[in-house]
Write a protein that binds this DNA or RNA. Structure first.
Lengths: 111, 111
DNA sequence: GGATTGGTCAACCATTTGGTTGAATATGCG
DNA sequence: CGCATATTCAACCAAATGGTTGACCAATCC
C-alpha cells in the first residue's frame, strides 16, 4: 500500500531514486527521459520507477506510448511528519507524537 | 559516516528500528532492555543498534558492562531538511502533524 | 577464583535488492 | 503493412539484508 513508512523510507534509501525524485521536481518526465542521465539500463530505471510508484512517491500515467512520471508529495509528507516528530519533540506535544508512534509501532506484519 | 542520506533512510526503512527509536524517545536504554519487547535474539537487536549508530540516529556509551543507547535526533533533521529541500511542506507545524493524526491514520480505540 | 550477566563476534542461511541482457508488447509513423 | 520507438517482462546474477546459533570477551557478584 502507498504511504507505508517501510516502503517510503526504503524507496528513499537509494541515491538513484532520490535523484529521480529531484528531477521530477522540475517537471513531469517520460520514462526514457528519466533514464537518460543515468549510466544504467532503461530496465533498471523502470524498476526504480515501479518502486517509487509503489511507495506512492510518484505516479505514472500512460499517454500514447509514452508513460509520464509525476512527483506525488503526499507520501513524502507522511515520512517528513514522522521524522520531524523526532527532531522537534522539545517544543511540545510529545504526547501527541507518542500516540502517533503507538499506532505505527505494533504493526510488524502489516496485513 | 553519520548523516549520510543513504544510511539514514535505509535505517529508517525497518520497522524494528523505527520502534527502537520510538522507545528511545522515552528515555535512554540499555541494549538488553531495548531487546526485551522484541521476539528476536539479542544479537539481532545488537545488529540493528549498530545500523542505527552508523546512521547517526543513536549513540551508544558503555558504562560498566552496560551499553546505553541514546536518541540522536540530528540525523533525522538532516534527512528532514533534504525532504524540505524539494518538498513543498513547511518545516514542521504541529497543526499539520495533528491533521495527520486525525486524517491520515485510522483512529484505534486504545490510543 | 568462579559463576553470572551484558553484549558482540563469527559463521551460516534464506530472502531481497539492484543490476544485467534479450525477448516481448504496445503504440505511432510513413 | 512494416518498422521504429517506448516500456516492460523474464531469467539470471552478485551482493546486501535480516535473522539464527554458539562461542567469546568483559564486567560484576559472592
Amino acid at each position: 500500500m502507498p504511504n507505508d513508512l517501510d516502503t517510503v523510507f526504503a524507496a528513499l534509501a537509494d541515491p538513484t531514486r532520490r535523484a529521480i525524485l529531484a528531477m521530477l521536481l522540475e517537471d513531469d518526465m517520460a520514462v526514457t527521459d528519466v533514464a537518460e542521465p543515468f549510466e544504467m539500463s532503461l530496465a533498471a530505471i523502470s524498476k526504480h520507477l515501479v518502486i517509487l510508484t509503489k511507495a506512492g512517491l510518484i505516479s505514472q500515467e500512460k499517454r500514447g506510448r509514452v508513460k509520464w512520471c509525476k512527483l506525488e508529495p503526499d507520501a513524502l509528507r507522511t515520512a517528513s511528519v514522522w521524522m520531524q516528530g523526532f527532531g522537534q519533540f522539545e517544543p511540545v506535544n510529545l504526547d501527541a507524537f507518542e500516540r502517533f508512534l503507538e499506532i505505527e509501532l505494533p504493526t510488524p506484519d502489516e496485513a
